[in-house]
Write a protein that binds this DNA or RNA. Structure first.
Lengths: 242, 242
DNA sequence: ATTCTCAGGTGCCTA
DNA sequence: TAGGCACTTGAGAAT
């Protein structure tokens, strides 16, 4: 069944008691228990336990799957050579269910409320952040990463805006700081940095202020087929250093 | 079947043609196609397409699953209220397979080669990084995050060591930089920062050097039941600023 | 409950 | 291919 499934790009399901061994980027051992093994038409190989979202062992698209069996056991293996040589070995002592299915699905998901979408909404009306802001560029690529929004303020300063769809933490602040520093070095002149998110952690806010960056809180509502910026609240700072 | 499975903490599998709608932290729509729906005993709800590792729609442990049907359709819903109110709706126009299974598995995976393990190995012999290093603390907690290893060098300087099990990028450098800056502020005196990883990106190395931090490359081998540090190669720097 | 970091992260996109 | 980053990130640990 497994051989037929992999040969004909069908979905294979195996449920039963098994041990699992993995060696590759890391290594793992999982002693006997009941698990669900999923082999997708594209070679994706998943071993699921009875709880949690993530597969406990896995192999990405393109894995080579082989199966062998004796009188009282079934062994299924999955291996690939990229990103490194990896191998999963599943040894079933008992199979409760095994079958394969054709599975046709070329549909792509439409996701609303992504950071990219929010960034686009903000770009359409930068006055929400501050009056007098003129949009310059979206996703402006620097040598290290890309600024979500690049704008110019009423005083002529460059403004780098980083958007986060959820909590902004320390990483968001250092990320923005990197962009601002590179822009100052490359373009010279005054460059401001504004972090926009629905929430920021206390540590992140402290660091942000210490670095001379600014924060702008916003809320959004996920409607259909899009998201809406509901409100903005600017954390005002005295910008003496500019 | 679904009701029985959720009531008795059994695994349920449904395979068929369906549309999927999601609304919660974000929102999504997926038009008709053949998918595999997995409902785990703990409430985990997964919708898998025919390719890729990740579930295209999902709900974590604790989701409430309900099912309803008419003559020509089956609707399965999953919802939860944390972290926010969320809901997935799967509408089947055709069911190819549906069944539930008991699934007992309390085994925990043993993983080898984690960052924590590597960090522990390095701690056991810091001379691998540099002669004269004395271990002070593992996972030393600062106000913002925790340093992997804290040590003192031959000259009496504090050394913050950040370990990455694979590629170190810009984020790793800013992370280490944060720790070093906080240690300098809190403890005063000379504080060095060393990033240890098997690989570092060119940008990250440039930034690291510009910030006055150091890099130490290492390789490791995943044996069984553990990992071994194979070799280390120190990127020497003149530390005039200390 | 908040915040932080790791993950065999995965997946996406761009130079 | 390499690198930078978002993700309905998930999951765990510490405060």
């Amino acid at each position: 069944m497994v051989r037929d499934a992999t040969a004909n790009a069908r979905l294979a399901l195996i449920l039963g008691a098994c041990k699992v061994k993995y060696e590759g980027r890391a290594a793992s051992k999982l002693s006997e228990g009941e698990r669900l093994v999923i082999i997708k038409p594209d070679g994706t190989f998943l071993v699921h336990q009875s709880s949690k979202m993530a597969a406990i062992n896995y192999q990405g698209p393109g894995a080579a799957v082989t199966a062998s069996h004796g009188k009282n056991f079934l062994r299924v293996e999955a291996s690939r050579s990229k990103p490194v040589r990896e191998r999963i070995e599943v040894d079933f002592s008992r199979v409760d269910y095994a079958a394969s299915f054709a599975m046709k699905d070329d549909k792509k998901i439409h996701l609303f409320g992504s950071e990219r979408e929010l960034s686009g909404l903000l770009l359409q009306d930068l006055s929400l952040i501050e009056p007098g802001l003129t949009p310059l560029k979206r996703e402006s690529v620097l040598s290290k990463g890309a600024v979500d929004i690049l704008a110019r303020d009423a005083a002529g300063s460059l403004v780098a805006i980083e958007v986060k769809r959820r909590d902004a933490g320390l990483a968001a602040v250092t990320q923005l700081n990197r962009y601002v520093k590179e822009l100052r070095k490359r373009k010279g002149g005054a460059v401001r940095g504004v972090l926009c998110s629905p929430h920021i952690t206390a540590n992140a806010l402290a660091m942000l202020e210490q670095e001379g960056l600014e924060y702008c809180k916003f809320e959004y509502e996920i409607g259909n087929p899009s998201a809406k910026i509901k409100g903005l609240e600017k954390k005002q700072r005295i910008l003496g250093e500019y």
